[in-house]
Structures are given as C-alpha cells and as structure tokens.
Simulated assay, not measured.
Amino acid sequence: MVEKAMTVTTYKWTIERYHRAIEAGIFDDQPIELLRGDLIVMPPEREPHAYYNTEAADYLRTLLGERAKIRDAKPITLPNNSEPVPDVAIVKPLGEVYLEHHPYPEDIFWIIEFSKSTLSKDLGDKKDIYAEAGIAEYWVVNLKNSQLQVFRDLKNGQYTTELTLTTGTIVPLAFGDVSVQVNRLVGFPKI
C-alpha cells in the first residue's frame, strides 16, 4: 500500500475578511495583528516595553507638535494583506480621515517598534513587510541591548541602510529640522 503525503494548506486572510471578522467579534478582543495574511497573536506587554513606548510617544509629541500625529499601539493598513499594530506610528495629521481607515503607507512618516521578546520578528518579518509596503523609515528600539536600529533608504522594497545607535541624536528623514535624542528611546539616563 502506498501512502499519500498530506498537504497542509493554511487559510490566508485578506484585509477585507479580517475587518469583517473583527466587526463580527470573532477574535473576542484577542490582541492580534495581520501579517501577510496570517493572524499573529501579540504577546502581553511587560512593564519596560510599556514604559519606554509611552515615554517615547510623549517625547515625540513634544518634538513634533501639530506637524504629525503620534499613534501608539494602533493598527496601520498595508497593501500586502498586513495590518500590523506598531508600537508607535508617526503619521500625517489627517484628522477625521482616520475614522474611515487606518493610516496607509503614504500617510506614515516612520514607525518605531520596542522589542525584547519579539526582536527576531521585528528585525525580520516586520522589517520586510514595512519595506515592501514602502514605509520610508523604520526604527527598532532593541531593549535587550539598549540600542536603536534604524532602517531607511528603500530600494526595490528593501531597506539599504541600517544604523545602530546607542547615544547621540538622529534626524528622521521626514523632519530634517528635528533631532531625536537616542537616550530618550533606548532607556539611558537623561544627561
């Protein structure tokens, strides 16, 4: 008797089906995000992550004022059947437009993820998804090593520049007149 190999097929979600499932209450408020059509359960947020995320968002609000909207832990909608929930998304201040849809790539100045337990996902899949979608700049605050990893300069759907910073300042691509103090993001004491 010849055994047949079983093929495993996974169900790929579209943005539209995902939104319908959310509206129907299918996920019971389970913290999930959609990455390339796959549902990803988000891990519980620990205290350091919550602290640095909140402090960074408040700091960026002070730096950017009305020039940008700082959305922390809110979804963004990307064309590759992804609706991730970045820790901080710095977006165009479009007001009530966001009643109709989450920010699209063209609405996003840059994204920041604070990462310890999800570091490999944030430096792998999420970085690739953001680059493919055309997000101009992506920052990962590596809470394991107290460093900021900056990805920018898109070419063919990939970031071509990576910077790793532990001190000093960084100027976001979208705001050439704004200097962000790295120590305000990575947790070093203020000087």
Rank of each mutant, 00 (worst) to 15 (best):
R61V: 11
P44H: 06
E100D: 13
R46W: 07
S82I: 09
I129Y: 06
K74A: 15
I70Y: 01
A21G: 08
R46N: 08
K92I: 09
I90P: 03
I76R: 00
N81F: 07
M42D: 03
H19E: 15
H49W: 03
I76M: 04
K121Q: 03
E45T: 11
T118A: 05
H49I: 03
N80Y: 01
Y18R: 05
E23F: 09
E100S: 09
V91G: 02
K69T: 13
E33R: 01
E106T: 08
R61E: 13
L34H: 00
N53L: 12
E83N: 04
E47N: 12
V88Q: 02
Y59I: 12
I76Y: 06
A57M: 14
Y59M: 14
A73Y: 07
R61G: 04
E55A: 15
V85H: 02
I112C: 10
L63A: 08
S120A: 13
N80Q: 02
D38K: 04
I129F: 06
V88C: 04
L94W: 10
H49Q: 10
R17W: 15
P84M: 00
T77P: 11
G37C: 12
A68W: 10
Y59A: 15
I76W: 02
H49T: 00
G25L: 01
G124K: 00
F27D: 10
E106M: 07
T62F: 12
R36N: 08
D125I: 03
V97Q: 12
P103C: 02
P86T: 00
